[in-house]
Design a protein around this nucleic acid. Structure first.
Lengths: 345, 345
DNA sequence: CTGTTAGCGCCTTCAA
DNA sequence: TTGAAGGCGCTAACAG
């Protein structure tokens, strides 16, 4: 249709004032006389002008009042992980309060992720934890806009908001492995290849997810302090953070010749899968099998799961504050071990 | 710091080419000689140029390649509702596939919501169901950009993607109320005031949420076809769509002088609350109390809940397609009744 | 394949 | 309180 976009200039002309008066009407109404303001608004109304064009305004002002959020791999996976959703909610809280928009950047894992980062009209970025070698990190860095990474990796020039994963894993591992004879770990993937493996301790190859790396190191310390050699610890690496895969892996472990009697998982979702597998196999928790999770999600309380409590929502909010340059926020977040009935006393 | 933003013009100058050649290097690389392209990229690299500024590009091109999503009231509530999250995931699927960003607009319910809509640098809007009188609708309409409303209300000039809520309520109501003597309904709020009420059928006052209105009409038809007068039907209006509030309301109903023996709820979350209340009160399902939900969420299968199945994820995707002008999408979405053990045979 | 011109719509700066 | 000029950084439309 011929309905061209209405501009401020047209409004000003119809109102019989200069463009600047019209502009002030929207941006500094107090600096315009009531008379002029009324004329401008009337003209805007008859022309159907909905206010200054956001792109033009962003260009002129040098700021978009929008934060970009990168959730890793497939954007929609983010919505399948309840903890990721909490994290987003924390960002949303801050954005709503400050009048910022939040743009979720669609990442697919393919080569076109990088231009997508560059093309995002945002003032800063928040990046959900990823691998050391994720090209998204370089792309974000190249934009030179403020950016915060959640949980890692640490990248030069970018902020980091995280808990101390190694210390927390060490603490929860101590609870998980207490009184055990055959400790096992259910791990997140080691690298972006997301290969499932089952290793009897020892060398796991290269680990590029820093969160996985830190937690494994913490568990290792806990196992060693409980008197185990690292080679005695079974490490089952899952491709994804899902209850279903964890259940299957746990079932395999429990049916093996030397079934574990303690399993430390990296999420409550995984731990829930372990508990289902134990029930199906008739294995008693915690006597025959101690189980620990991570996050203290809703499911942890329902299942009486010993876990690491942390607030992803608060961490999301902290990331948003840092990305907005309100850096008074704590960058090292709090965690604690919550003991419930899934571990031995 | 003095580190001014690097512009394409500076890159071009350093590379010894015109600005257009530099621009083409980014937008139509195939139209530039290898030699020139290499020079431009080298210059960009030494200057630390990260590619064309997105705001300037949007202004020039007249398009932002971003969709705006309005989730109603407090943005972060959206993340607390699993069905809303599915809906967002559906939008995210399409955005990722088409290389669009999705901007979640921070809505607070206060007066500044309207300017926030106007200030959003987006090509189109998707609005999560709201009330007839929500000022956001007028604001979206005023932008003259393509917009889709999910579930309603229907607004002149805006698209609508929805199931037939009245027909679905009528169908599920027939199952819920079959063999019952005292039917009850657990309703979403009637208006943005979100007042909880308990009415013995009859006049509910003005209902401005079209989804609530349509479903109540459907339930009413089901009740009447089952031989009840509308005044015999208890309608408990909840302020929010939450299990906790529904549980409390259901507990009150079940403890009353004339407890219901059938409760049709407007969501699976609410129905889950009802089931908890029934268990606590020692009321047998379905014999003493039939319960129905809505959405066929994960919890419905766990609880054996009879419910209305619909895919919010698909509906989110459909909204995105329509907002992008790929209108070949079905605007009337599919639904079906899933019978499980929570209702009488 | 490369370059010139002319704005996109707005708001900061400066002057009246 | 109002206005005139200029340019934010980029790319469509057209030459060459």
């Amino acid at each position: 249709m011929g309905t061209k976009r209405v501009t401020l200039a047209q409004v000003a002309e119809l109102a019989g004032v200069s463009v600047m008066t019209a502009s002030y009407t929207y941006n500094r109404p107090e600096r315009v006389s009531d008379h002029a303001r009324a004329k401008v608004l009337a003209a805007a109304d008859t022309l159907g002008y909905a206010g200054p064009d956001p792109s033009a305004r962003s260009l002129r002002r040098g700021s978009t009042r929008t934060l970009g959020v990168v959730m890793g791999e497939h954007l929609s996976y983010a919505f399948d992980d309840p903890e990721a959703v909490s994290f987003l909610a924390g960002i949303a809280d801050v954005c709503a309060e400050q009048g910022y928009g939040m743009t979720l950047l669609p990442i697919t894992g393919a080569a076109d992720d990088v231009p997508r980062i560059h093309n995002a009209a945002v003032d800063g970025f928040i990046v959900w934890t990823t691998s050391d070698d994720d090209p998204v990190l370089t792309a974000v860095q190249a934009t030179k806009r403020p950016a915060v990474i959640h949980s890692g990796p640490a990248v030069r020039g970018l902020e980091l908001v995280s808990i101390d994963n190694r210390a927390a894993a060490s603490a929860i591992g101590a609870v998980a492995f207490a009184g055990a004879r055959r400790p096992a770990i259910l791990s997140f993937p080691l690298s972006r290849a997301r290969i499932s493996t089952l290793t009897e301790g020892g060398n796991l190859g290269e680990i590029t997810f820093p969160v996985t790396r830190d937690r494994l190191e913490g568990y290792r310390r806990a196992a060693e302090e409980a008197g185990f050699g690292w080679h005695e610890v079974v490490v089952a690496v899952c491709a994804r953070n899902e209850a279903a895969e964890a259940e299957q892996v746990a079932a395999t472990l429990l049916a093996s010749a030397r079934p574990p009697d303690a399993i430390a998982a990296m999420s409550d979702q995984q731990a829930a899968g372990v508990i289902r597998a134990a029930r199906a196999a008739g294995v008693a928790i915690p006597d025959d099998l101690a189980v620990t999770g991570w996050d203290d999600a809703a499911v942890a309380e329902q299942l009486g799961l010993t876990t690491v409590a942390q607030s992803l929502r608060e961490q999301g909010a902290a990331c948003a504050h840092v990305a907005l340059g309100q850096g008074r926020t704590v960058r090292t977040a709090a965690w604690s071990v919550v003991r419930r009935g899934s571990t031995r006393r």
